[in-house]
Design a binder for these strands. Structure first.
Lengths: 112, 112
DNA sequence: TCAACATACCTCGGTTTTTTATGTATACTG
DNA sequence: CAGTATACATAAAAAACCGAGGTATGTTGA
């Protein structure tokens, strides 16, 4: 059981402010979420590969001198649209779950 | 991919306002969430059974005249605590995912 | 009348997902 | 010099999901 996030959405969001490589993305997600979310590598890399296959992100190997090269990802136009769609899904989802979980709880006003 | 709700939390929340049977719970979740969430029966009944096994809900068969009897569930004390814990988890989860998804987005003020 | 839908419970099994472990390689730190 | 951090990746085992099926009765509408 338990709630599950959409890792694709998180990755796309992290890339919306600029390119990054996989390992950095996993750290960004951990830090941005204030240690609430942590991404297993066995899940992150396959997700990056499938996002790349879908054309939502593009990848480029960047050499690192004597260190092994990094695979740096960038958001594509298509990925930007996917991110927007997933953000809408997130809002609908939180509204839905929130309504059920606030069953019987006093009203809650949210002003954006 | 996609976001996933914690069905146990939803069920416990729906039972916090009074007893109900399985089929009714599935409708409550659908209606309360404004049609955003729909629970497959193949998921609902096993969840009810495991909540019962864990002592979070108690069940009673209620005869219905000539109609087949209903299995009516009620929240236990333990279940009430579990619900509170899961509600906290939900808040932490939304804060975490929200922070990541609002990466780079203007501030959002929430007044409760 | 009689098919279709709603109520009401339940299980099974193929597919998908997740998790955990393993693998490679370098650099830094105590 | 062991342990941790960086940095990529896969693969097998475990878990979860979804859809389909099964049983049974009552109501509704064409």
């Amino acid at each position: 059981m338990g709630f599950r996030e959409d890792l694709e959405a998180l990755v796309l969001s992290c890339l919306s402010t600029g390119p990054a490589h996989g390992y950095e993305l996993s750290k960004r997600i951990r830090v941005l979420s204030d240690e609430v979310l942590s991404v297993a590598e066995g899940k992150l890399y396959p997700t990056l590969h499938s996002l790349e296959a879908d054309g939502d992100i593009s990848a480029e190997w960047v050499p690192q001198g004597n260190k092994p090269p990094r695979k740096v990802y960038e958001l594509t136009e298509s990925g930007r649209k996917t991110l927007q769609r997933k953000q809408s899904e997130w809002h609908a989802f939180t509204r839905g779950v929130g309504s059920v979980l606030q069953n019987g709880v006093k009203e809650m006003k949210v002003v954006i």
